[in-house]
Amino acid sequence: EPREEEAEKYIKRANGDYDKAQELAKKDGNEEIAEAIKEYKKR
């Protein structure tokens, strides 16, 4: 799923820090991806 791939990219950029990844996504205006990262975190 493209959303998950995007989320993974942010998580990698944030060195595995989900909260930081979420912030990066929000900064880029990717609210949807920020949500996907939140879902990811719950797994």
Rank of each mutant, 00 (worst) to 15 (best):
A25V: 02
G29T: 02
E23D: 09
K27N: 11
N15S: 06
E35A: 12
A7M: 14
D17G: 02
K26S: 09
D28V: 02
E5N: 14
P2D: 14
A14D: 00
E39R: 10
R13V: 08
K20I: 12
E35F: 06
E1P: 12
E32V: 08
L24Y: 07
R43C: 09
K26L: 15
E39A: 08
K12E: 13
D17E: 03
I33P: 01
A34T: 04
D19F: 06
Y10G: 03
K41V: 06
D19V: 08
E32A: 12
E31I: 13
L24Q: 08
I11V: 05
D19E: 13
Y10Q: 03
E31D: 13
K41D: 04
A7E: 05
I11A: 00
I33D: 01
K38F: 07
E5F: 11
K27I: 12
E32S: 10
A25M: 00
E35W: 06
E32P: 06
E5H: 12
A14W: 00
Q22D: 03
D28F: 03
I33C: 05
E4W: 15
K9H: 11
K42Y: 07
Y10N: 02
I11K: 01
E5A: 14
N30W: 07
R43M: 10
Q22K: 04
E1V: 13
R13S: 08
A7S: 05
E1I: 13
I37L: 05
I37A: 00
Q22F: 15
A34I: 12
E8K: 14
K38M: 11
D17N: 08
E6R: 06
K20L: 15
N30P: 01
E35D: 10
N15L: 09
A14M: 03
A25Y: 00
K38C: 05
E1D: 15
E5C: 14
E35M: 10
P2Y: 14
K12N: 10
N30I: 03
Y18R: 02
A21S: 01
I37S: 00
E32L: 12
A21V: 01
A34K: 02
Q22C: 13
E32F: 08
E6F: 06
E31Q: 09
E8L: 15
A14V: 04
R43L: 12
E6P: 05
R43E: 09
A21T: 00
I33A: 13
E5Q: 12
K41W: 08
E8S: 06
G16C: 09
Q22S: 10
Q22P: 00
N30A: 09
Y18H: 04
I33T: 07
Y18T: 03
K42G: 06
D19C: 13
I11F: 02
P2K: 14
E23Y: 06
E32D: 13
G29C: 00
P2S: 15
E31W: 15
G16H: 05
L24K: 03
Y40A: 13
R43A: 10
K27A: 15
E4V: 11
K26P: 01
D17P: 00
E39Y: 05
A7V: 15
K41I: 08
A14T: 05
K41S: 07
K20S: 05
K42M: 09
E31Y: 15
K42Q: 11
K9D: 14
K20Q: 08
A21D: 00
A34N: 04
D17W: 03
G29Q: 05
E5W: 13
E23C: 09
E1Y: 14
A36D: 05
K26R: 14
Y40N: 05
K26F: 09
D28P: 00
E8Y: 12
K9N: 11
A36M: 15
P2I: 13
A25E: 00
R3D: 12
E32K: 11
